[in-house]
Amino acid sequence: MDSFGQQWKKTISVLSILSVAIIVMFFVSLNTGLTKIPPLEVVKTIFGSGDEGTKMVLFDFRLPRMVLALLVGAGISLAGAILQGVSQNALADPGILGINAGAGFAVVLFMFFSQGTGFAIGALSIFSLPFTALGGAFVAALLIYVIAWKNGVTPVRLILVGIGINSAFGAAMLVFQLMMEPNDFTKALVWLSGTIWGTNWTFVLALLPWLLIFTPIAFYKGRVLDVLNLGDPMAIGLGSHVERERRILLIIAVALAGACVSVGGGITFLGLVAPHLAKRIVGAKHARMLPVTVLLGAFLLLTADTLGRVVLAPAELPVGLVVSVLGAPYFIYLLMRTR
C-alpha cells in the first residue's frame, strides 16, 4: 500500500509541475510575437487596468489562440491514449489512422458547399463545424473498423487499413480543394496543415463543451482501459463486456479527435507522443496516466505553437508542422523498439 501511495504522490507532483510549466509557457508565449507584452502588463490587463491596445492584442488575438492550443492539445492527446488502450497498439494515433483525415475531408466538403453562401463566416458555421468534422471522423472510424474486420480485428490490420483510408481521404480532399475558389483553397490548405491562428473566442466556445463532456467520461473509463490492457480473455474473465466497452471507448476517442480536428486542423503524432511520455513518467495505470496525458498534451501543443511563431519569424509555421517535425522522430524511435 505504501508504494501505491507513493505513486499517487509522484503523480500529484508531476501534475503540479506540469501546471506550473503550462503557466510559465503561457507567459512566455504571450511575450513572443510581434507585439511583446511583459508579464506585469499581462497581469495588470487581466485585472482590468491595462491600456486599450494591450487589451485588444491580449484578449482578441493572443488569449483565444493559446486557450485553444491548450484545449486541442489536451483533447487530441486523450484521444490518442484511449485509441492506444483500445487497439492494444502502441503506435495508434488519430492522425496515422485515418480519423483526422476523415474529419478533414468532412470539413473541406463543408467549406466547399458553403462557400459563397455567407454561411461560411457566421458563428453558426463555427458551431456546426465540430459536428461536421465529427461525422467525418465517425465515418472514417467505421470504415476502418469494418474493412479491418475479418473474424475480429487485429492491431496490424487496423493500422494498415488506417493508412489506406488516410490516403483515400487525402486524395478526395485534394480533388475538392482544387475545385474551390482560390481564397477558400488557401483557407482549406492552411487549416489542413494544422493551425490555430486567426481563431477567436467562438472557436473556444465551440470546442469547450465537447471536452467538458468527454474528458470526465474518459477518466471514469480509465479502469476499463486497465482491464482491456490485460488482454481479451482475462478481461472477459474479469466480467467485462469487452466488445461493448471497446466500442464505447472508441466513440469517446473519435468524438474527442473529431472535435479537436474541426478547430485545430490535422495535427499528427501529438496523440502518440503525449500518452507515451505520460506512461513513462507515471506508469501504465490509466487513472494516473490519463490526467498527466491531458496536461502534457496541452503543454506540448502550446509550446509547439510558440515555437512555430519564433522559428521562422516573422513568418508563422502552422502548429501541425511543428508537432510533426518534433513528433515523427519520437514515433520512429518507438517503431524501432517495438517488435
Binding site: 474493412i147 479491418a148 475479418k150 487485429t154 496490424v156 490490420r157 494498415l160 487499413v161 493508412i163 489506406g164 483510408i165 490516403s167 483515400a168 487525402g170 486524395a171 478526395a172
Partner: peptide, 15 residues
Amino acid sequence: ALIGVPFFLYLARNE
C-alpha cells in the same frame, strides 16, 4: 490514389 486505395485495403486485410 482513388484507384489504388481499394487495392491497398485488400492487401491490408491480408496484413
